[in-house]
Design a binder for these strands. Structure first.
Length: 533
RNA sequence: GCCGAUGUAGCUCAGCUGGUUUAGAGCGCUGGAUUCAUAACCCGGAGGUCGGCGGUUCGAGUCCGCCCAUCGGCACCA
């Protein structure tokens, strides 16, 4: 059954090795990880790709300053990013590096194909050049600077160079039609409109090579030209799948994963992913990704994160959160409070603590704790034998039965995950926990338990509670894999075997807990002291 | 400068095509109740001139104009 369903894939941008890992990298990658895990849990064949981008003038320059080769610098920092992936518990299926032979050789093949089709041509670029910085500045920027270098103060010079260009202008109307037909190609909607607006302003061809540095992939047939880092980088999505050689072994194994369902990026690189990249894919006659999802930025205590302010949420800071709250709590915060929309989201220790306490400690963990504790107390820690599927989920008149409620919740959560509405999926799953709390508050099993004659009723109530907690833990496991596994293990119902492959709705089906199973007391999230700051 | 958003309780936000009320939720704060549970769960309360001004209308948070404030995008930022 599961194997009949379409394979799916998701990508992060590949991370630039000249940067240090920070919350932005962690955020994008965590979102992708949650989605990938949710789809695997739903029985799908998933490919989740991330990696590092290693070429370009900046890397060359940093390496020179440190007196090492660019490759050595790339090796070192790529390894750093790889470690970060492990640290975050990320389940990527591959980690591609742009300095790998498999990538470079395919980029050359792709570019050759574009040359042959006329989509890439040799042209001349003329612009304002800052000789000290060895870089061109745009015309508008040059005017702002009064035609002087912002660093040295020396006048900018008019300079010319030959570059290879990608014929982006030829794809303007095709892109507009594509956007008309695919209103969810770029999400969220605000970003879609932004791109549409700019498309209407027209498109210019874009240079894809430079000649003033050498750390990059040489242009086929013209090695003095180096392929621009961002063109090089974009191709990673296809080279990881071996698409430049459709008959090769990689493509035969991984070709089924193209196109990606989601290409998740930060808003700063939207233009390349939403316009340049689709045009290149059109030129190469490759299918379009289903959606480019551009999230916004985390800001720190109300202020933009910047090197000069020194308020970056960097890796050491993140590790402090791991130490205090745990990895899964971090993932929960990223997933439910992040800047997935058009607006930036604030990261603050106080807010983190409040979310942790109210949602994870007071809601999720407390419910698991009170349920397991009562089963321990009244039934010696053994899942009672009681029929609960048709039991009303609450005392309100139109309340659905527990099996119905769990079923509709699972369907809804599955839909939200699939649609990349991760915070909504989380909230919906948590609503099941809230429903269990309502049941306990309404029926007060702890009072009924004082009367031995009422134990069968207590059994039904607690049986439903345990089952509700189990289903919620299944549904939340893509976000908090370790903590949910802990809860499911305590309930004697770990995700494995057919649970793991039969689809999420199947795993969440009411009544999987069987009478007689040993239920252990569990409290997955402990209260911690509030931050002092 | 150009284009586009946003501005609703302390905080984060819901409020669709104007008329369900005395404008809502979560968190925070505060009173109470309770004990199965991790000072948790539950009930109640305080708190808002719905950015400002003007207009359209029988009636506007919800439409129009202007103003103020904040933010995003404007192609070589991975």
């Amino acid at each position: 059954m599961a194997s009949m369903r379409t394979p799916v894939s998701i990508t992060t941008p590949i991370y630039y090795v000249n940067d240090r890992p920070h919350i932005g990298h962690a955020y994008t990658t965590t979102l992708c990880d949650v989605w990938a895990r949710s789809q695997r849990l739903d029985g799908r064949d998933v490919f989740f790709l991330t990696g590092t981008d290693e070429h370009g003038a900046k890397v060359e320059k940093s390496a020179r300053e440190r007196g090492i080769s660019p490759q050595a610098l790339a090796d070192e920092n790529s390894e750093e990013f790889r470690k970060v992936m492990a640290l975050f518990g990320l389940s990527n299926d591959d980690f591609i590096r742009t300095t790998e032979e498999r990538h470079e050789s395919q980029v050359k093949l792709f570019v050759q194909r574009l040359l042959a089709s006329g989509d890439v041509y040799l042209g001349e670029f003329e612009g304002w050049y800052d000789e000290g910085q060895e870089e061109y500045v745009t015309d508008t920027r040059a005017k702002e600077l009064d035609y002087k270098s912002p660093i040295s103060g020396k006048p900018l010079v008019r300079a010319k160079e030959h570059n290879y260009y990608f014929r982006l202008s030829a794809y303007a109307s095709k892109l507009e039609k594509f956007f008309d037909a695919q209103p969810a190609f770029v999400r969220p909607l605000g970003r879609f409109n932004e791109v549409r607006g700019r498309l209407r302003e027209g498109l210019m061809d874009v240079p894809i090579t430079r000649t003033n540095f050498s750390w990059g992939i040489g242009m086929p047939g013209a090695p003095e030209h180096v392929i621009y880092v961002w063109i090089d980088a974009l191709f990673n999505y296809t080279t990881a799948l071996g698409l430049a050689d459709p008959k090769g072994t990689t493509a035969s194994l991984r070709g089924k994963y193209w196109p990606p369902v989601y290409q998740v990026i930060g808003k700063e690189i939207l233009w390349f992913h939403a316009v340049v990249w689709p045009a290149m894919l059109m030129a190469l006659e490759l299918p379009m990704p289903q959606c480019v999802y551009a999230h916004s930025f985390w800001i720190s205590n109300g202020q933009k994160m910047s090197k000069s302010l020194g308020n970056f949420i960097d890796l050491p800071t993140i590790e402090e959160y791991f130490a205090k709250y745990g990895l899964d709590a971090w993932r929960w915060y990223m997933t439910t409070q992040g800047p997935i929309g058009t607006q930036d989201a604030d990261f603050s220790p106080k807010h983190f603590h409040e979310i942790y306490t109210s949602q994870l400690v007071n809601t999720f963990a407390n419910c698991a704790s009170r349920t397991s504790s009562m089963i321990e107390k009244y039934f010696a820690g053994v899942m009672p034998d009681a029929e609960t599927a048709s039991m009303p989920s609450s005392s309100s008149a139109q309340a659905p039965s527990w099996s119905e409620l769990a079923g509709t919740t699972a369907v809804e959560v599955q839909r939200r995950y699939a649609n990349f509405e991760l915070a909504e999926a989380a909230d919906c799953a948590l609503s099941l926990i809230r429903a269990v709390d309502v049941l306990i508050n309404e029926t007060q099993p702890f009072k009924l338990a004082k009367d031995p004659a009422k134990l069968p009723e207590v059994a039904r109530i607690l049986g439903a509670c345990a089952e509700g907690v189990r289903v919620a833990a299944v549904l939340l496991s893509p976000i908090m894999p370790a903590k949910c596994a802990e809860v499911l293990t305590a309930l004697g119902s770990p995700i494995e075997g057919e649970f793991a492959t039969g689809g999420l709705v199947n795993a969440a089906r009411w009544g999987r807990l069987t009478a007689g199973t040993r239920i252990l007391k569990c409290a997955p999230f402990m209260r911690v002291d509030a931050p002092t700051a």
